[in-house]
Amino acid sequence: MKKSFIFILIPTVILALIAYFVGGIDLVLDGLTVASKTAGQSSIMLIVSFVLIGQLNILITKEILDGWLQKFSGIKGIIISAFAGGLFPGGPYIYYPFIQSFNNKGIPFYIFIAFIMGKNVYDISRVPMEISLVDPKISLVRYLVTLPIPILIAMITRRFFQGKAMDDVFISPGEKE
């Protein structure tokens, strides 16, 4: 977690400096205002979602998850994860900690990516906004042409990494904290 924090802190400081040189202290303050507004709007949602994540972690034990993954692995697991991602409410500050919390339970990376891509592409909570603010016809075309994307990306990922967990794919043994 310490490494992740340092990793995100560096670009934050760099962008704050760029904002300072581009638009002075006012632009930096604008950025901080946008950030605090988003944080303020999301604070209750964040607390509730972490309560939910905590309860889910108790309810869904490694044994239960193993059972599901054995039952719903492969293409069936990919489809279920992708649609579950699409139904999952909240922003990235909610679904990343949620799916990350299953990482130490050995969830395969392709299931992880199916969930993330499903959330990014299908996100059911965005449908009314997309229809009303863009165009219903374009929205329909967009959903139809992007429907296979999470499933295809997860299938490619499965082909590359088989059943490996995310930590085994992206974090070398020496990096594990």
């Binding site: 977690m1 992740s4 924090f5 995100i8 802190l9 670009p11 934050t12 962008l15 704050a16 760029i18 904002a19 581009v22 638009g23 632009l27 930096v28 604008d30 950025g31 901080l32 205002t33 946008v34 950030a35 605090s36 988003t38 944080a39 964040l46 500050y93």
Partner: peptide, 15 residues
């Protein structure tokens, strides 16, 4: 991490 990510997203948005 979340607070830092909010600040980073805010800076990206204004830049």
């Amino acid at each position: 991490l979340i607070i830092c990510a909010f600040i980073l997203a805010g800076m990206i948005e204004v830049l």
